[in-house]
C-alpha cells in the first residue's frame, strides 16, 4: 500500500513547523497510519523521500513506539489497559471476553470481518475509571463485559469504520 498524493502533500508541508526536520517524522507517520491504518514498508520509504531523511531512520523510529502499527489491525483497534490498577479491577477478564466476542485467539489478530483487533497495553492514565480502554481516539471507562457487548454492537453497526478524530470529541471542537 502506498500513500495518496494528498497525504504526501501534507507530509511535505510539515517540516517548517519544527526547528529540525527530524521532528516531522512522527507527525508524518501519524498521517500515514490515518490513511492506511498501518505503516507499510512502501509508505515509510515514501515518508523518507518526502522528508529527505534516510529510510532506515524512519523505520528505526517506527519500530520504537508502540502506537505505530507495523502489522494490519482491525477497523476498531482496542487498546485495553491491563497494568496493575486496571488488572485489580478486572482487566484480564475483559480481555478474555473481548477475544471471545470478536473471535480471535491471539492479541493483535484481526477478526474475520476485519472490524476488530485487541491488544493489552500499559497504563493509559485514567486509573480512577478502571478498567478502561482506548479505541478510535476515545477512552471508555468503568468497563464490564456487558458494556463491552454494547460497544461492540455499536461498532458493528458503524460500518463506515473509524470516526474522524474531530467527531470523536464534540466538546473539544465546539469552540
Amino acid at each position: 500500500m502506498t500513500l495518496s498524493d494528498h497525504t504526501l502533500k501534507e507530509i511535505r508541508e510539515l517540516p517548517p513547523k519544527y526547528p529540525h526536520i527530524r521532528s516531522a517524522v512522527m507527525p508524518a507517520l501519524d498521517l500515514v497510519q490515518e490513511e492506511l491504518g498501518m505503516l507499510t514498508q512502501e509508505a515509510m520509504t515514501q515518508v523518507a523521500q518526502a522528508l529527505q531523511v534516510d529510510p532506515g531512520y524512519v523505520e528505526g523510529v517506527a519500530t520504537f513506539y508502540s502506537l505505530f502499527h507495523l502489522e494490519p489491525v482491525g477497523k476498531h483497534h482496542l487498546y485495553v489497559c491491563n497494568n496493575l490498577s486496571c488488572q485489580l479491577r478486572g482487566a484480564e477478564e475483559l480481555l478474555t471476553h473481548i477475544k471471545e466476542s470478536i473471535g480471535v485467539s491471539e492479541y493483535g489478530q484481526v477478526s474475520a470481518d476485519g472490524l476488530f483487533s485487541v491488544e493489552p497495553v500499559e497504563c493509559l492514565g485514567a486509573c480512577e475509571y478502571a478498567p478502561m480502554l482506548r479505541a478510535d481516539h476515545r477512552f471508555h471507562y468503568d468497563l464490564t463485559p456487558a458494556k463491552i457487548d454494547t460497544l461492540l454492537k455499536e461498532w458493528r453497526g458503524d460500518r463506515e469504520g473509524k470516526k474522524a478524530r474531530k467527531e470523536a470529541h464534540p466538546r473539544a471542537g465546539s469552540h
Binding site: 529540525h20 526536520i21 501519524d30 520504537f64 505505530f68
Partner: peptide
C-alpha cells in the same frame, strides 16, 4: 504541542527530548 507515540521512557526528561527531536526515545 507535540504528540508522543506510546513509550513510558519519554517521561524521563532526556528521552523526552530525543523523542521531541524525532528520534528513538
Amino acid at each position: 504541542l507535540y504528540r508522543g507515540h506510546g513509550a513510558y521512557i519519554c517521561g524521563e526528561e532526556t528521552a523526552l527530548l530525543e523523542s521531541l527531536e524525532g528520534k528513538r526515545a
